[in-house]
Write a protein that binds this DNA or RNA. Structure first.
Lengths: 174, 174
DNA sequence: TACTACGTTTAGTAAATACTAAACGTTCAT
DNA sequence: ATGAACGTTTAGTATTTACTAAACGTAGTA
């Protein structure tokens, strides 16, 4: 591999690390994805260790998260005990996968607690100005969450969220 | 204020704190927003201190971030040195505001670094199989980022991203 | 002028998170 | 069976982030 290619890869990896951190993920996660994304062939765990400088343990746990999000895929070869990982190169597929994963997450638990607040108020109603105000506000938030939820569900259901769909959306929003 | 209303507010605040953390923000930020969101009247900094249990300093810095995102608004009253804060109740407006804010963020810097990688490769081209592969991958990522960027720009430009627009999008995606 | 009621900044602390090093269990080869 | 090459788990550490307490600057008030 040429010297400049090594440098290119390093820069790119650093860029993705920052993006990863921006979205609240460990920067190592971005680095792992970057290394896999730029590799023409699937890599073993130890190869990722070599490329990223992280330890096996860290990679083991973080790559599981990446796999759960559908950003990397694990595969194994016959007669080879190593696991191999490769990056998902279709980002639209990845988005759908991430949204799907999100459904089971802590986020939805919190959203359901808002729903719960609403139900608790209805079950034990108090006729009071402030009570009314609070109820309306909580209800508005819940409706907003519902809209978002429907949107993500629609996206997840698409067989393919491709370029064409994005442009379709863009045209509607014009 | 009735005892049960206090409890309702506390539960709700806790829920928003978790949602805040999920999105990578301090949980205090969610708590501050929740308190303002459920308050019929704008609150002063010291009132927020009382409601959240956080200190002035923390609230001062975090509320500035909230204001930058357009999630709260600061106002002042004549003959009153206190600042008053109220929550933005229109979440669609808030989303647009957040996306706008994002433009100047660390995220865009990182994205531009991907663009930079691409340009560096073009400026110093090497005819090589792996070089080609890497170039195509980086290019694909950059195109993806562009699509996202256009999407957010379109949303920001809408005079109002309301419920109706969301349903419009939903119908296109069907 | 000094005093008070503010919001902000700063310096230090507590808490959460990412990561390392090493022990562990499993599978396959000898 | 023993050992080597794996991925995983765990316990501890380093780093980052959120937060507190207190000093500070400013503007209005007496």
């Amino acid at each position: 591999m040429s010297a400049s290619l090594t440098r290119i890869k390093k820069d790119f990896t650093q860029g993705l690390s920052q993006i990863s951190r921006f979205w609240g993920f460990p920067k190592g996660m971005g680095a792992i994805f970057a290394v896999l994304y730029l590799s023409p062939t699937p890599l073993s765990l130890n190869e990722i260790v070599r490329e990223t400088g992280l330890t096996k343990g860290a990679i083991s746990t973080e790559i599981r998260a990446l796999a759960r999000m559908g950003l990397v895929h694990r595969s194994s070869r016959l007669g080879d005990r190593k696991d191999y990982y490769e990056a998902e190169a279709d980002f639209y597929a990845a988005i759908r996968s991430i949204l799907k994963e999100r459904q089971n997450s802590e986020f939805d638990r919190a959203i359901r607690s808002v729903q719960g607040t609403l139900e608790a108020m209805e079950a034990n109603w108090v006729e009071d100005e402030e009570w009314n105000f609070v109820y309306e506000r909580v209800q508005a938030l819940q409706e907003f969450f519902d809209a978002i939820d429907n949107l993500t569900k629609a996206v997840v259901k698409l067989e393919k969220l491709g370029f064409s769909n994005v442009t379709k959306i863009l045209s509607v929003l014009k």
